[in-house]
Design a protein around this nucleic acid. Structure first.
Lengths: 345, 345
DNA sequence: CTGAAAGCGCTAACAC
DNA sequence: GTGTTAGCGCTTTCAG
């Protein structure tokens, strides 16, 4: 019933535990004859080393914790998949926790994972001042590597590693794409400006406008709540004042707000990619369900996952994977074109 | 740097390890005064018990392994989210492995998780004869509970627990919905019949037809490869022979094939929900991007996750959660309506 | 009420 | 080459 131990094997073979251990691990001198005898016997049994005991002795769990707000988000599950691929090759496994957007749950998991002594932690926190909580400090005091994804705490310790999106570049790319298609009167629907993602994307919009000698009209800047209803309301507002403040294109700076904005446009009897050009942010339609297809800037999830995976290995085993060159990285968004943008003129 | 141990604490307090252990775990007699002294001291330190050591002693890891082919699939990440919610309340954490549809990787993970001595395993295997591999047997010999999801091996041991979809009922529901809308000439695009999901869904189609005294026309049954291109080709075939074998509606028995079929219909200049009614299988468009919206039968992912979670707890701690009543469960699909079905007559 | 001691399964000096 | 031993951090008898 209970799995066999080295001791069991050793007893049956009339050998010492250490000898068996040596052949199992393939390290240390063992006479070829004995080695074979052990190997043959092992083949008939079903011995699998107990990693828990190994962990206790070696003081490393060979596990990496991942804490995130919602596993259903495409962004997260893709990243995890990549991280898994990269680190599992080095023998690490992933302990995953979904906080369901709850700070309380996030803290509980932070504790639980520390108890389990994860060798490193990847976290997309919703608790933006982790430096102040003892929860994260435990890891830091410990020297346990932490990598933040999606967002990162303001705290500027060099212990704070992250891989996040370059929001400025992303929205610049979006707006530039509209401009390249001949649009000049461009509205933006951004998220709350007190959140970095909201603020930075809005700045990106302004940067692109100014780089093209266009003046962002304050009336064409709408601020929503990152959700579909926010996008809907913002779009409504923009449309209602359209005779006074005309625009031919809009950049919506989050996925859900894009969904809402599209609905508002449709309900106003207008056609996307004809009456109004739309470029979204991180809109996922890999199945190609939307007609017209939605142009959007997107985060390179695979790249993020790979970078996080590699950074983990470098942080955990620098002697093997080299010291990480950069532990604060901002990845670039890419353009996914779609028929929601029409050429002007 | 290294986290403190009971020993460290005990030494500083001039107490024995066992006394400190008792107050940390709140079990066993400790004089109220000493208890307070320990508690006060602990508050100033930052002691977190080492779960690895606890696990070794207790012979349980408080972790549950999950092995699945692709974390990006909505079906899986929702289930995991629910399982996590349920079992984490009981102190378990999830070790997750994405095999990327590879049998070899699946086996490697099966081994790794056994090494880590997971207390239970949830698996969506792609290796349909696990009974023959020693990989799964190790767990079974061990008494380690295994729950299969999505599909299950043919092997009919009572050790094989599963929570899977009732495919017959799902396709029956789909076809019945078409019939209820007045359709009688109904085509089906099913997956390969040597896979249970392909076969059972096709049977469900036949059952619904027969229950309504309709004769499934063999020419209206197309078999594809479960992927978008398969769905596309099948739909093409059906459309090309439509004058000889007319139909007004089609049930496509997998998500990706539905996507392909929709494209084929569009490219033939026909309109879904007008010229042809379509009901898909497990089509996910929670963002509501598709127009018209796609009617589909869907798996109740949340229910599956909850059932698996509860079953795990019951299998692991029957004294606390009661013995599981049923360990082979088939959940029912539900209907998600959409404008891809038009009423006939 | 508290402490000493054994042992979970494994690794790694260190002897022989 | 192989065995003995100590010890990773914890829980849990068993003495005192």
């Amino acid at each position: 019933m209970k799995p066999e131990t080295l001791k069991d094997i050793a007893k049956e073979l009339n050998l010492s535990i250490s000898t068996v251990s040596r052949v199992v691990n393939g390290k240390g001198y063992v006479k070829e004859e004995t080695r074979q005898r052990v190997l043959d016997f092992l083949a008939t049994r079903n011995y699998v080393p107990n990693e828990i005991a190994r962990s206790l002795k070696a003081q490393e769990s060979m596990t990496i914790g991942i804490i995130l707000p919602d596993l259903r988000e495409v962004y997260f599950n893709r990243i995890i998949k990549e991280i898994d691929r990269v680190v599992s090759a080095a023998g690490y496994m992933l302990l995953i926790a979904d906080t369901n957007e709850s700070k309380k749950t996030e803290r509980r998991y932070l504790d639980l994972m520390f108890q389990k002594r994860v060798d490193a932690l990847v976290i997309s926190t919703i608790d933006m001042d982790p430096a102040e909580t003892p929860y994260v400090e435990r890891y830091l005091n410990n020297g346990t590597p932490i990598i933040f994804i999606d967002n990162h705490p303001k705290l500027d310790s060099d212990q704070v590693n992250f891989v996040v999106l370059d929001n400025h570049q992303a929205s610049r790319l979006a707006v530039q794409t509209l401009i390249d298609n001949g649009h000049r009167d461009i509205a933006v629907i951004a998220g709350y400006l007190d959140e970095p993602t909201g603020y930075e994307r809005m700045e990106g919009y302004c940067q692109a406008m100014e780089a093209n000698d266009l003046h962002p009209d304050p009336a064409l800047i709408a601020i929503g709540n990152f959700k579909a209803d926010g996008g809907y309301r913002c779009m409504e507002e923009l449309l209602l004042q359209r005779d006074v403040h005309p625009f031919t294109a809009v950049h919506v700076a989050s996925e859900m707000m894009t969904i809402g904005a599209l609905r508002a446009i449709r309900e106003h009897g207008l056609t996307v990619g004809q009456d109004i050009a739309v470029i979204g942010f991180d809109v996922h339609d890999d199945l190609g369900l939307a007609t017209p297809t939605i142009a959007t800037v997107r985060q390179p999830e695979e790249e993020v996952g790979q970078r996080v995976g590699l950074m983990l290995l470098q942080l955990l085993r620098p002697e093997k994977y080299g010291a990480p060159e950069e532990t604060k990285v901002r990845v670039k968004a890419y353009l996914q074109s779609g028929s929601s943008i029409h050429k002007l003129q």
